[in-house]
Design a binder for these strands. Structure first.
Length: 564
RNA sequence: UGGGGAGUCGUCUAAUGGCAGGACAGCAGACUCUGGAUCUGUGUGUCGGGGUUCGAAUCCCUGCUCCCCAGCCA
């Protein structure tokens, strides 16, 4: 990292902030906020927003609040609040004492509403929901004014007070801003500010039976908290005139709303509605299914917060609608774990190998490096004996071109151990290969030959007598198409689910080192990929999730050979 | 003639009137006790058409395409 390079703005939001800093618009302050609604779990798209908001505060020496946008008691739950806090913390961000809730400000918001009523800028409407919709007009035709629009200030005050007091059933009245029913911007056609909801709120209980709408809450919350830059996604661009209108009419501190493009990821769905369907309809095991793009899913899969933050940095921030290739996310994880993950040998589809000239009963402790990228991680001992398991894929009776691995009569290296040569192939009555006989060269201990001869192939292995059994879960993309919504006429994204997104392997053989692994620990299984120990593990049966596979150039060659 | 926003390699993103650059993906090669990692090489990309200018991705005009908005959701 070079300190001599001037940092400078890296996206349009930083440009705005630096301009504001130059002109002293907010007295040199930068104060952002991350405002989730506690009605679902956070996903990788939220991570982009979290990294942006907290990252900006960090970069400019400001603050970032965590604020729960809890203005709809019918959808929000405490469970989500806890999960969201855990996820933000896990990502590596700290909101200090600044944990706020829109519901903290309900009283203040009520006073703001009263102020607008007194100014003649808000009124109680008694039209039904259906009537309000009709009066709103359409995208191309102006709306018309409600017959209740010109109620007196006194009547509005009285009605609004009685709404709060609980005198009316849900839907009987709403409080609306008096703006312009003919505006081209539908949000300005007398938007609803308050609705009656006789529902128990997860924090305020039954204290309130009227709740503010998002538009009447968000900007005022920003104002109360002294937010300088209120960053949200593109679909709120149309709301900005309303955001500004409320603040101006209320004559209170006025933050600025800035919109950026939300994250879209190939082969992935990120809408709460769709994620909820995947969970509720059982296509995945839960919000934290390792195939889910939720932060809890990614965490269980084996993703690191560092990889996700690096990803957020790399995708940038702009106003273009875009779809980021999920391969970039995978790349970020590989890059992080390559640097940090403990290497270990694991045989996923075992094939027994008897080394016929190795002394029966002998065990040697072979020294293996823990991470060739980081010598400080040291070495470990791996037991070697007469019977070992290798990967079934690492042997071919009739090897194709460019196959460097084991075949009859061929010599390969067992990593960190010996060079072995295949002498016999043992089959069962069905012709199925059940066992290989090999000989080893005692002169090659550690894996290199004193005569300098080279072998093309290096295999991982596990000593049969010392192996631990394990279950391994191989995950693949949840959807078959880059755009899961690209479904045949009359079908939806579920039509594009990948039927092979999870493959469960049992009877896997892993090296004894893994006995001490804890759920959440991540490893590189040599030549396979990065794996994370799953909380489903028991003492008898550890379970490992594949977070991401290693790049596999043999698979690529094989595919090419198959297609030509 | 409803309103708002956006168009740069396959994908994402830089450039702020002065050499269109980076990352991912792909392809080719080198190296390797992980067919990993690493390294090297590799690009017919500025939505179209006009204009201003010595010079335009950038400024002007014009056309086209895409996205968002009609919850008492956020």
């Amino acid at each position: 990292m070079s300190d001599t390079e001037p940092k400078g703005p890296t996206n349009f939001i930083e440009e705005i902030i630096e301009e504001d800093l130059r002109t002293g618009k907010y007295g040199g302050r930068v104060h952002t906020r991350f405002p989730p609604e506690p009605n679902g779990y956070l996903h990788i798209g939220h991570a982009k927003s979290i990294c942006l908001n907290f990252g900006l505060a960090e970069k400019y020496g400001g603050k970032c609040n965590l604020r729960f946008d809890d203005t709809n008691p019918t959808k929000e739950e405490e469970e989500y609040v806890q999960a969201i806090k855990e996820d933000v913390r896990w990502l590596g961000f700290d909101w200090g004492e600044r944990e706020f809730y829109a519901s903290d400000y309900f009283e203040q918001l009520y006073e703001f509403a009263v102020k607008l009523i007194k100014k003649g800028k808000a009124y109680v409407d008694s039209l039904s929901a259906e009537e309000i919709r009709q009066y709103r007009g359409t995208l191309t035709e102006p709306g018309k004014e409600s017959p209740y629009r010109n109620r007196s200030v006194e009547e509005n005050l009285d009605l609004f007070e009685r709404m709060r007091a609980g005198e009316f059933p849900d839907g009987a009245h709403v409080l609306r801003a008096k703006i312009d029913m003919s505006s081209g911007n539908l949000n300005m056609r007398d938007p609803v500010m308050y609705r009656i909801l006789h529902a128990t709120h997860h924090r305020t209980g039954d204290k309130w039976c009227i709740y503010p709408m998002y538009d009447f809450a968000h900007g005022q919350c920003d104002s109360i908290e002294g937010i300088t830059h209120s960053i949200c996604t593109l679909e709120f661009e149309d709301h900005r005139p309303l955001y500004d209108w409320f603040l101006d009419e209320l004559e209170i501190y006025h933050p600025q709303q800035i919109e950026f493009a939300r994250l879209n990821l190939s082969y992935t769905v990120l809408s709460k509605r769709k994620l909820l369907r995947l969970v509720n309809e059982g296509y995945v095991s839960g919000w934290d299914d390792p195939r889910m793009p939720t932060l809890s899913g990614l965490r269980r899969r084996g993703y690191t917060p560092e990889a996700i933050r690096d990803f957020a940095d790399r995708i940038g921030v702009a106003k273009n609608n875009s779809v980021v290739d999920v391969a970039l996310l995978e790349h970020c994880l590989r890059e992080d774990l390559n640097r940090r993950a403990q290497r270990v040998m694991a045989v996923l589809r075992p094939l027994k190998v008897v080394i016929t000239n190795y002394p029966e009963g002998q065990v040697e402790e072979m020294e293996a490096v823990n991470n060739p990228e980081d010598a400080s991680m040291g070495t470990r001992k791996v037991p070697f004996s007469r019977v070992v398991y290798i990967e079934r894929d690492d042997f071919r009776e009739d090897p194709p071109k460019k196959f460097y691995r084991l075949a009859p009569g061929r010599e390969v290296r067992l990593m960190h151990a010996y060079l072995i040569t295949c002498t016999d192939v043992i089959k069962d009555e069905n012709g199925e290969i059940v066992e290989l006989h090999c000989t080893y060269d005692p002169e090659t201990r550690g894996g290199s030959a004193p005569d300098g001869r080279k072998v093309k192939g290096t295999l991982h292995w596990v000593s049969a007598a010392h192996a631990l059994d394990a279950e391994v879960r191989l995950y693949d993309r949840l959807f078959l198409k880059p755009d899961p919504d690209d479904a045949p006429e009359g079908q939806d994204f579920l039509a594009n689910l990948n039927p092979n997104s999870l493959e469960v392997l049992t009877g896997c053989k892993v090296e004894p080192f893994l006995a001490s692994a804890q759920p959440g620990d991540r490893f590189q299984f040599l030549r396979h990929g990065y794996f994370c120990k799953d909380p489903d593990s028991t003492d008898e049966m550890p379970v490992f999730n594949r977070a991401v596979a290693l790049r596999d150039s043999w698979a690529k060659i094989e595919r090419k050979q198959a297609s030509s």
